[in-house]
C-alpha cells in the first residue's frame, strides 16, 4: 500500500520552513492578495518569497503547491492571470484552482503546468470531477468536506486521478465555493475576496466574565468564564431557530482524522491536507509532526490516533462528514 502524501499549510515563509522540516511531503500557499482563499492581513507570499520557498522545499525534497483558488473578478482579472503566469514561470509543482475561466487559461497558456482542482470548485461526484479531467487535464482533486467515506470510495472507483481530502483543522459545514454567508453578513466572501468572517468585521467584547464574539454587529456566540472559545466564523456560532438556542450549523470544532487513516487509505485517498494557513508556526510544527507520525504508522499497518484538542477551536475534534453520523 502506498503512503499517504502529507500536504501542509504555509501562511508565511517561516511556516513553510517549519512544515518542510517537520515532515511535510508538500506545502501549499498563496500570494499576498485576493487570488487565494486565505487573503488575511500580514499573511502569504510575495513572488520573491515564493521563489525562495521553492528553493528551500525542493532542496529538501518537498513539493510546493500554489493556491490561486478564488474567482477572478469581472473587469479586473489581472491579479489572477499574473498569479497563474508567475506560478508557471517559477515552476511550482502544481497550482490549485477553482475558477473555470482560469483553468481554461492555464491549460491553454501553460500546458505543462500541473493543475489541481481546489475544494472551492466543490466537485462532489465522479461526473463533475471527470468533467474537469477531460476539459482541463486536472491531475488531482481536493474533495469537499461534505462527503462520507463510502461516497469517497465510490468517487475513487470512478475517476482516474488522485484525491486529496482534508485531514485537520477548520471545518466548513457548507459545500465550499458555494457559500455566500460571509458576504451576506460582512460584504466579503471566500469566492470573491478570499476571506470568510474576516477579522476586519470581528470584535470581542468582554462582558463580566463572559466573552461575546461579534461579527459585523451580530452576536455570533457568548462563552462562559471557563468555556473554550472559538473564532466567530458565522456558521460556528450559537443561534436560535424556533426558540431553541444552539450550534445550528456546526460547533466550534476542528477536523482530526488521525484515528481513521486506515479507512481513508482503504477508500482510495492519496493525500491528506492540513487546513490552517492562517494559523501560527507553532500550530504547523505540532500538527505536521503528529501527522507525519500517524501517516508513517498507517503505512506500517498501525493506527495512531493523536489528540490535538489543544490546537482546536472549542478544544474539540471531529471526523466530520467522513462519518455519516455527522449529517
Amino acid at each position: 500500500m502506498t503512503k499517504l502524501e502529507l500536504v501542509c499549510p504555509a501562511g508565511t515563509p517561516a511556516a513553510l520552513r517549519i512544515a518542510v522540516d517537520s515532515g511535510a511531503d508538500a506545502v501549499y500557499m498563496g500570494f499576498r492578495d485576493e487570488t487565494n482563499a486565505r487573503n488575511f492581513p500580514g499573511l502569504n507570499f510575495s513572488v520573491e518569497e515564493l521563489a525562495e520557498a521553492l528553493d528551500y522545499a525542493h532542496t529538501r525534497g518537498a513539493k510546493v503547491l500554489l493556491a490561486v483558488n478564488t474567482y477572478a473578478k469581472a473587469g479586473n482579472g489581472d491579479p489572477w492571470i499574473r498569479a497563474v503566469d508567475n506560478a508557471a514561470r517559477l515552476k511550482v509543482d502544481a497550482i490549485i484552482m477553482a475558477d473555470i475561466g482560469l483553468l481554461a487559461y492555464a491549460k491553454e497558456t501553460h500546458p505543462d503546468l500541473r493543475l489541481h482542482l481546489s475544494v472551492q470548485a466543490s466537485a462532489s461526484n465522479p461526473a463533475a470531477i471527470n468533467h474537469y479531467v477531460q476539459e482541463f487535464g486536472i491531475r488531482r482533486v481536493v474533495l469537499p468536506r461534505v462527503l462520507t467515506l463510502p461516497e469517497i470510495r465510490r468517487i475513487n472507483e470512478r475517476i482516474d486521478i488522485k484525491t486529496e481530502v482534508f485531514a485537520f483543522g477548520g471545518m466548513c459545514p457548507m459545500a465550499e465555493g458555494r457559500c455566500s454567508l460571509s458576504s451576506y453578513i460582512t460584504g466579503k466572501s471566500p469566492n470573491m475576496n478570499g476571506v470568510c468572517s474576516p477579522a476586519s468585521h470581528v470584535t470581542y467584547v468582554q462582558s463580566g466574565a463572559d466573552l461575546k464574539t461579534n461579527l459585523a454587529g451580530f452576536t455570533i456566540n457568548t462563552f462562559g468564564p471557563n468555556e473554550q472559545a472559538g473564532y466567530p466564523t458565522l456558521c460556528k456560532g450559537r443561534f436560535a431557530a424556533g426558540g431553541e438556542v444552539g450550534y445550528l450549523f456546526e460547533e466550534p470544532t476542528s477536523l482530526n482524522v488521525t484515528g481513521i487513516l486506515p479507512e481513508l487509505m482503504d477508500a482510495g485517498v492519496s493525500a491528506l491536507k492540513i487546513e490552517g494557513r492562517q494559523r501560527s508556526k507553532a500550530y504547523v510544527r505540532e500538527v505536521v509532526r503528529n501527522f507525519r507520525a500517524a501517516i508513517d504508522a498507517a503505512a506500517r499497518g498501525e493506527r495512531l490516533e493523536i489528540n490535538m484538542d489543544g490546537l482546536s477551536e472549542g478544544g474539540q475534534n471531529t471526523t466530520g462528514a467522513y462519518d455519516k453520523k455527522w449529517m
Binding site: 474567482y71 477572478a72 473578478k73 469581472a74 475561466g101 470548485a121
Partner: peptide, 10 residues
C-alpha cells in the same frame, strides 16, 4: 460560479 468574463465564455 460565474464571476468573470472567461467563465461566462466557457
Amino acid at each position: 460560479n460565474i464571476y468573470n468574463e472567461a467563465s461566462l465564455k466557457y
